[in-house]
Amino acid sequence: MLLDIMQVTEGGGFVIIQDSVDCCGRQLLKSFINAALKREEIIHVLGFEVCEDELRAGLDSRGIQRLYFHDGFTDPLGWTECPALTVHQFTPQEISARLGHSEQPKSVMLVIDSLSWILRHHPPAVVCQRLQELRRGGALKSILALLHSDMHQQGIVGSVCHLATVVISVSPGTGAKHAVAKTTRRTKSGRVTREEEYFTVSEDLTVTIEAQTIHSGKAQAEPEEFEADPAANLTFNLRLSEVEREAKEKLSLPFVFSQEKKSALLHHRPGAGRILYEPDANDDFDQEDPDDDLNV
């Protein structure tokens, strides 16, 4: 599913890559960017955490001119004379103005590296509102954001992920190279799919899925456990031969009636006797004590 999401992101998508200190998600983010560059999309990166050269390193050289880097790394808080991008400029108006510089009405992808940085400097409710505003604006095809989930309270991570269409949380796998991606995707119609995959990101930023999660496999294997046959080692015969079975089937057991007799017993015939009982005023019927009328 990870590859599906990477290849086809429908309009209005909002993908969050959640990572922690144990497992970095930036390689996965870069491979997402690379896949989008190969699709000839225009990419705007709001970079706060790594410098431009580091982000561009390893990306597809043919499409690299379609990547616009807005530098929030050198001076994120505006301490020098002319900062390129500060955290406080994270408003829908400002960002759409920056997107407007390159005025192609083609599909534009906004990459936020990382959302954690923004969440440290703005109230979370405001960040959520602005992200939603950006999505609604229609200028963007999709938003891709990196979020360091162990830096924030659980509630903030939950609120931000509530807005997203796809949440990929990355955690270290068993081996040294593998990592586990837990992907939750919800479509506009309300369908939710979840999957767990082992993946590796190679040098040229291609993602390969190593294996599906063992989790689903384990659930499959469980019901097929071998049950010991109690009739395996017996000193007497419990099996029936074909002839014996036929004879057994023919035998009619007592109180097993034919179909006609059963239906005759179950359905009320017009001639049959029935008890009609209409309780009158003096009838003091007590459910709890059936022997109420006995004078004992």
């Binding site: 979370p124 409710a125 509530h162």
Partner: peptide
């Protein structure tokens, strides 16, 4: 009560 209403009861204890 969600964050989009500008409410932070979803975010903080």
């Amino acid at each position: 009560g969600s964050a989009l209403w500008g409410d932070d009861i979803c975010c903080k204890e």
